[in-house]
Design a protein around this nucleic acid. Structure first.
Lengths: 110, 110
DNA sequence: TTGACACGCAACCAGATAGTTGCCTATTCT
DNA sequence: AGAATAGGCAACTATCTGGTTGCGTGTCAA
């Protein structure tokens, strides 16, 4: 079967705004909610919700510092997605492409 | 920026049923709608919709054979996701982990 | 201590999504 | 030709999702 929290990670990654947030953290790690908001063209609450989703999927880990909340990338879940899921398909890339080619050719001069 | 159809691929992958369909095709490529339905515990129409989403994201390519529709995996989009997106994060895996560790430690003996 | 700042919580809303049912079309088999 | 099979289309429904507004709480600085 699938790893148990694979679903949360895929769901978290399925939204453009959340991928952008990851990109912002990739550009500069450890940013506060406020800093991330200034780059995001939506209300603070919306950004906060997105970050909560990312945190739930453990793609982001937070640290409180006084009244601020610092957000850090956690590379582990993406690594697991690659190892357990994407890698599996990548390893059969050539085979799948050949099967596909053959099917399309047979169709054409049927 | 992101590749233009990255979003469709991530959205397609965000649903468990669709990932299961990809797994079924991974186990046996070139299956018909009917064959896939028998393994999926939902109506044929629901499965058909899921396959349409996968086709829209070009994760699956179809070939008509008479009244049947054969479904084949297309490995290209997943490869692109890896190359352009996942790989970027994987390459900075160790660095991100170190930043995270340091932040968590500073918090503890603050 | 008072005000400003950083963030959290909850209610609400519109549109997307995942599923259903019902019916129609096209192909194959006898 | 007629029945059975494989699939497509459309309408409908319930829930999920991404966003908003409004207000409350904790922390810092003057």
């Amino acid at each position: 079967m699938e790893g148990n929290d694979v679903d949360a990670v895929f769901k978290a990654l399925s939204d453009l705004s959340r991928r952008q947030l990851l990109d912002r953290l990739f550009a500069q790690n450890g940013q506060t909610l406020g800093e991330l908001c200034r780059q995001m063209d939506m209300t603070r609450q919306a950004v906060s919700k997105h970050l909560a989703v990312l945190e739930e999927a453990r793609l982001v880990v937070t640290v409180r510092r006084g009244r601020e909340k610092l957000h850090y990338l956690n590379p582990v879940p993406i690594g697991e997605i690659y190892e357990r899921w994407i890698g599996k398909y990548e390893r059969h890339r050539v085979q799948a492409l050949n099967e596909l080619k053959r099917a399309l050719e047979e169709e054409h001069h049927e």
